[in-house]
Design a protein around this nucleic acid. Sequence first.
DNA 1: TCGCTGATTTAACATTTTTTTTACATTTAG
DNA 2: CTAAATGTAAAAAAAATGTTAAATCAGCGA
Lengths: 226, 226
Amino acid sequence: MIYCVEDDINIRELIIYTLNHTGFNAKGFANSKEFFKEVNILKPDLVLLDIMLPDENGNDILKKLRSNIDTVKIPVIMLTAKTNEYDKVVALDQGADDYVTKPFGMMELISRIKAVLRRSNDKIKKDLLTYKELNVDLNSHEVYLNDTLVELTVKEFELLSNLMKSRNIVLTRDVLLEKIWGYSFDGETRTVDVHIRSLRKKLGSFSHYIETVHGLGYKLGKKDEK
Amino acid sequence: MIYCVEDDINIRELIIYTLNHTGFNAKGFANSKEFFKEVNILKPDLVLLDIMLPDENGNDILKKLRSNIDTVKIPVIMLTAKTNEYDKVVALDQGADDYVTKPFGMMELISRIKAVLRRSNDKIKKDLLTYKELNVDLNSHEVYLNDTLVELTVKEFELLSNLMKSRNIVLTRDVLLEKIWGYSFDGETRTVDVHIRSLRKKLGSFSHYIETVHGLGYKLGKKDEK
DNA sequence: TCGCTGATTTAACATTTTTTTTACATTTAG
DNA sequence: CTAAATGTAAAAAAAATGTTAAATCAGCGA
């Protein structure tokens, strides 16, 4: 699903019509408010964003999208007036994926949409953490040890991927609980330890790399490596 | 050592020549394959990466560098063609430290290299305390003496890092108890002394730098050195 | 809804590591 | 020289972690 935020009804309708007739699924919004209302319900695969809008500047919308975890990765193409170089730079700076200068042809727009989607797919596909002989695919939630799949439960997976992301840094039980379980638990619980145990068991000899830092927590990375 | 990956032989040679004549040590590679072969042998301090390359896109190389534990922290400066705004954004997204737009002058390149190296040093130093041949990494909680790891317990580690932070300043037992143990203990306890003892033992000859200030407490740093 | 399945948490106990205490030796300041 | 401060080793105590098994929970198909 593609969302298009554009106040000019002619341009908007034209875009929606064209997209819906070229294999896409598109929906138009005249302003920021409408748009965000819908975004909260369904996240689009891509957003076409006009910079000049009645209620809120397109760059501000972009900023909002990028500052929210749920929308940070949605690809955005900005629709800019030719004259405004500054906005263009700001947009790219804030993480727009591409921009199209008005007036533009539908062919160009579609080709850019396809390009952005293709690239964004590639990007997603490559969300891969690697450490030694271990590969953790954040998208498919799969873990490969020497190319053989290791089946982990959700908690084990989160534990491992957090350790991978913070390699060589000690993560305390508190931090792990906060990050994975979401609570700031005061009282004592052995949950983390037990999951570490089962994770280690499943990872076999690789578990040497999951170090216990006595009195602190756990860490990925062997002592003797800098 | 700086590695430069750039397929255009003229640009490459120019960069290498300039760097080697301005106090740097640089080596050039025409493609990804060559580059990675060398990286496996020796990790560079910084990489200059062209985006357009014959065998593999510069952004993909960057991603590989960032997904591998050994290379994740190597600073990277991208060399981009002016036209390609998108790649630039992607590059910064993936953790490039800076980019230079072609065509660029050698002065600019060098100033950016210096800036990136400076920043990357600052970053590392932030979590790393150094005194003589001793390094204390506050993140990984590791202590290296002449590049060999010294295993410390939590209390020993805290003791040492407090001394490191307040080098040349006497820390009384009260202060240390307060800072590390968290209590304002009235009665007498030999705890600090005992931990100092074991710390010294583990630090071998370096322990000369941990001075006892009779009647007061302990201090890192020899009298005769400033 | 019920009962099944696998995941997760809790609980209990074993083991390991760290910390503190103790007791005595040694050093230092005055 | 003497009293107070510090060094040191070993024992004792405490705390942290490992491990297993049982209890609980959540999702799902009948």
